[in-house]
């Protein structure tokens, strides 16, 4: 067993003294409000923290099996995904794949099937890890998080997850839906892996293209992960308008400009997956690929 002097000094205990299994969301929130407690849902984050020998709060509150926490609900304007939905369920959701293929692609790209059967969507987001895949897709989609504590609730954007308090829990994730008469939406998630599977991405990108009923570009969206502060939404101001004026949908010039901005506005870090300079090139490349696929899907009007 390795003990390196440069390892963290451990002040707290390494194992929780108690695992609590509340039967409702309210009960879970009350337990969290009592303090010195951490949430465990699928258990993957907890396992990694234990492996890294990070101090552990006295109490773990298990929320992985709360009633109603793992449902997907559809309305005319949005789809509401419970925070307890496992990534494996998400990737297999046919209806979601039709509306937001980018989200099911991102969920299905995480780690391995065994790990995806454990990881919950809420846990994956709450980890606040810039390289995680679902948050990149959700950021590009403009998803909102419903967050609760014992007394009240609020809404957060994906990018604000760092503000989640220890007594708060993500209740659900809301994705907007476009009415059929308002045009079509295409989306795509692209992830570049050095080995090809079961690894953190070198770069991961989500892209959305909205076309109006006439087929003209109404809106473009891009988010980039595995960069400092990620997922970073790319500022594409003016580009949708420019693209919308062009006949025949989105052209390569617009896509290249969007890719250029994605590379310009993000700060990747060098690591075992590649140098920062290389990742910048790959961000442009995969932004291009994601937008191209998203535009194609939007034009086909099928979402996929």
């Amino acid at each position: 067993m390795t003990t390196l002097d440069r390892a963290l000094e451990h002040t707290g205990p390494l194992e929780p003294s108690m695992l609590l299994t509340p039967h409702s969301l309210d009960e879970a929130l009350r337990l969290l409000a009592a303090g010195d407690a951490a949430v465990v849902a699928g258990g993957v984050g907890h396992t990694l923290r234990r492996h890294d020998r990070r101090p552990c709060p006295a109490t773990l509150v298990s929320v992985g099996r709360l009633p109603g926490f793992d449902t997907v609900t559809w309305t005319d304007t949005e789809v509401v995904i419970g925070a307890g939905v496992r990534l494996s369920a998400l990737e297999a959701d046919v209806r979601l794949a039709a509306a937001w293929p980018m989200v099911t692609e991102a969920a299905g790209s995480v780690a391995t099937a065994r790990i995806r059967r454990m990881v919950t969507l809420g846990g994956n987001i709450a980890a606040d890890d810039d390289s995680h895949d679902p948050p990149v897709a959700l950021a590009a989609a403009g998803a909102r998080l419903t967050v609760r504590d014992a007394l009240s609730g609020r809404t957060l954007a994906i990018g604000d997850i760092g503000g989640l308090r220890r007594d708060e829990l993500i209740q659900d994730v809301r994705l907007p839906l476009t009415a059929p008469d308002q045009g079509t939406v295409g989306s795509s998630f692209q992830k570049f892996l050095v080995r090809g599977l079961w690894e953190y991405a070198c770069v991961n990108v989500g892209a959305v293209v909205r076309l109006d009923a006439r087929g003209a570009v109404r809106d473009l969206s891009l988010a980039v992960g595995s960069v400092t502060g990620g997922p970073v939404p790319v500022d594409l101001a003016g580009l949708a308008e420019e693209a919308g004026e062009a006949a025949g949908g989105i052209d390569d010039r617009v896509i290249d400009e969007a890719a250029r901005r994605a590379a310009e506005q993000t700060s990747p870090y060098g690591d075992v997956r590649g140098s920062a300079a290389y990742k910048t090139r790959m961000i442009a490349e995969f932004a291009r690929r994601a937008l191209t696929t998203a535009a194609l899907r939007a034009a086909e009007g099928t979402g996929r």
Binding site: R195, G196, L197, W198, E199, V272
Partner: peptide, 16 residues
Amino acid sequence: PTRPNFVDYKLPTAGV
């Protein structure tokens, strides 16, 4: 190595 484990050290998988 900065992270001496299989997260960074990529053995080839069946997919490779």
